[in-house]
Design a protein around this nucleic acid. Structure first.
Lengths: 337, 337
DNA sequence: ATAACGTTCCAAAACGTTTTGGAGACCGGT
DNA sequence: ACCGGTCTCCAAAACGTTTTGGAACGTTAT
């Protein structure tokens, strides 16, 4: 690890001059600048990141805290998202630091620790909630952040999100067009913003289709897991007036629901339509294929990274928010493909 | 961000004493220690990580460089692995920094940058190759690292790996017991250590079953993706003496192979057995379910984290290597379940 | 000749921490 | 009185960088 001091000594210059030469200050002679540049490349010099951050008061580090459940963390798209974020940030010479903490006290303690020890200069917040303490905390501290998903707050903030409302409305309308009337919505917990938005889209389509009454009976809520999808679907199918379509908030719920349909002796597609959201790999390998919609994780990751960099540079959050429309992917499970 | 200086001033003590009190040095009076502790908690004091790392010459940061292909990075288990690593490291007050870089020049440049700028104190190496430049580089630099998977090197090194050899041998033997004779192996590229080990297990079982000649014709190699699994399986099935079993190196290859089998008009399970490795979520939602084997990612992540911490503390790599046996998961695709 | 200015360089301070090498106060024993 | 030892405490240096506030020199204008 060669330092400025070593370089300066070798070149017969002062530390100051070497530092300024590498930073393209105008008060160093062209010839010296080149000499320094060359020597630095030669010696494979890299500024010591800790020293720089100590002196400048801030570094180039973005933190991502995964909202991890204890043992099981089955979010297949996260890997892709992280890869995209990591790649983009690395290209701009920034670091991504990754932590996992359970939502709640542990999560907030993690955020506080990162901010107060000066480890992180900005955050990417995943799985935003409608009332999100993480957002409140970072706003209060004046730390830049970007949300993956929307939240409710007074101040302007920057986010990337899929248009779940429009996406679920369009899909529901399509199902109505196929003749479905009793379309149930298996929602994720309503404290998660995306769950509320998707439910709103479904409700709008139901209302416009004159199916208000059906809608009133057909909204159920559970965790976005296969297990809860299975349980909720089984309960609905065992009811007095079972639905003919199960519009699930996520693919994982939908996969659980598909299993419940099969166990009830019904055919997925012709008898009962099942749909999801995310386009996880399993969706295309299920039989029949799962009708779903997608927000390309690689693109979202890229955007999140680009936006957090812009925020760190002082960009206006109002100009940085993006709602991306969802790509609909019809497959056999909705009786369409 | 309160500093030692601020604390010291408030308490009427020197910086030294405050620092030593918090670090439990014996040369500070019990009463002072408590007074300092209390004030530190009060002020929500955290040592500034960059300052500490600058002074101590090393910090508490582990790096993980994802071997990412450009746009698509579909390794569902990575998310879980990362969550486990991040959680364990955070619990021990270490940071995980995550980067993505394409194997090759970009990847090595990333490693060099991290080491030379003093950003990373240790590494977790994923997807080890038989001859791995990353291992060679870190060995040369004396930087501690842990491998997820094995590699070929003279010096002792630490790793966590599943026993692919025994696992694939056991599964192949089981297939032979079911009456299969022409068991093809769809291998991953042989520069990846795990691919070689899995192929070796398959070969051993074939030899012990007296099927040497069949084995000679039935080894094919491709990328561990659905696309290559599909292609290789289709080629084999179109051959003069098609196999009755497709033993795939990974679940993703197996899912592609299953599609090829269906397209060939054959039944998965009764006609042709298909098996994989990883137990990705899609494996259990395919129809029929995919017979596979598993190395629990959460446990591997925990172990990797624990081991890298031990290595950073100077632990002997010889005592830190673990080969975990694989859990076999029989499902319909092998005609067993 | 002197003043004013532009160019090129540098010494020193600062960021917040840990560690080194004592210093001062008090005790008991001589 | 003095010495040795034990308890507490602290000033100062160091880690590698960036930044401030000049200094030294040569050139041009007065």
């Amino acid at each position: 690890m060669s330092s400025l001091k070593a370089l300066a000594q070798r070149l017969g210059l002062s530390i100051t001059t070497v530092s300024r030469a590498l930073d393209d200050y105008p008060d160093v002679a062209q010839s010296t600048r080149e000499r320094v540049r060359h020597a630095a490349r030669e010696a494979n010099y890299r500024p010591h990141s800790a020293a720089r951050r100590l002196r400048k008061g801030a570094g180039e580090t973005v933190a991502f805290v995964m909202p991890a459940q204890p043992g099981h963390f089955h979010e297949p798209v996260f890997a892709e998202l992280l890869a995209a974020i990591g790649e983009k940030l690395a290209a701009e010479h920034h670091d991504l630091i990754l932590l996992a903490a359970r939502p709640g006290l542990e999560e907030m303690a993690t955020y506080r620790r990162l901010v107060e020890s000066g480890r992180a200069d900005a955050f990417i917040i995943a799985r935003t909630r409608r009332h999100d303490e993480r957002v409140a905390y970072l706003e209060a501290k004046g730390v830049p952040f970007i949300c993956h998903g929307r939240t409710e707050t007074k101040r302007p903030y920057a986010f990337v999100d899929g248009d779940g409302e429009a996406g679920f409305k369009a899909l529901t309308t399509r199902l109505i067009g196929l003749g479905h009337r009793r379309i149930a919505h298996l929602s994720a917990p309503s404290y998660l913003t995306f769950a509320t938005l998707r439910a709103a889209g479904w409700r709008q389509a139901m209302t416009e289709g004159g199916l208000d009454e059906a809608a009133r009976q057909l909204l159920v809520e559970g965790e976005p897991t296969e297990a809860d999808g299975h349980r909720l679907a089984a309960e609905l199918l065992a009811g007095p007036q079972p639905p003919t379509a199960l519009l699930c908030a996520t693919d994982r719920m939908a996969l659980g629901a598909m299993q419940a349909v099969v166990e009830a002796g019904l055919a997925i597609g012709p008898d009962i339509a099942v749909t999801g959201h995310d386009n996880i790999p399993a969706a295309s390998y299920a039989r029949p294929g799962l009708t779903t919609m997608e927000l390309p994780p690689a693109e979202v990751g890229m955007r999140l990274a680009a936006m957090v960099l812009a925020r760190m540079g002082g960009g206006d959050p109002r100009e940085l928010s993006t709602v991306l429309s969802l790509r609909q992917i019809p497959r056999g499970s909705s009786g369409e493909a």
